[in-house]
Amino acid sequence: MKYLFYYKRTGLLRYLSNHETMRMIERILRRTGGEFKMTEGFHQRMKLSFGQALPTGVIDRSGLFLLSTDEILDEEFLKVANSISPLGFEISKTEIVNDKFELGKSIDGYIFKLIFLRTPEVHDGWEIEEKGKIWVAGFFNVFNSHSPKPDEFGQYLTIRDSVIFKKS
């Protein structure tokens, strides 16, 4: 069965590179003791496929990866996996998807939110919201286009907030 995992990477873990995030996740899954599909070869790795890579320093509330297994990954599995994860990483849910499901073909894009401590300069497609002493700029980013880097617009925090799937 193919599972789609939704995860969040927050706090200090936003400083992980993409590669480091992937390795952390693989090791969490290995610690669960579950049977997952592996690659061939001497150094066997788990067969995982991820959504779009993020620049280091971005908070991720919409991380995604696909995993194939014959095991039933239920609520209990999520609880166990989250209990053996580093602080700042959490799998929020999993869902079974069609065997042919591929992230690259299914994701339309992501909603990013940038937090500013002063009035930001407005760019095309941005929606600005003033919340007390902070400004939140939200915008849609097409899949595999350039993700905003931390500090690119003078923002205080960069958040990948949610994923938008293509309408099938």
Binding site: G11, L12, L13, Y15, L16, S17, E20, T56, G57, P86, L87, G88, P150, D151
Partner: peptide, 13 residues
Amino acid sequence: LDKVEKPSRYMGN
């Protein structure tokens, strides 16, 4: 941490 190479070296946790 935003400004140094490989911040995960210094993160702890």
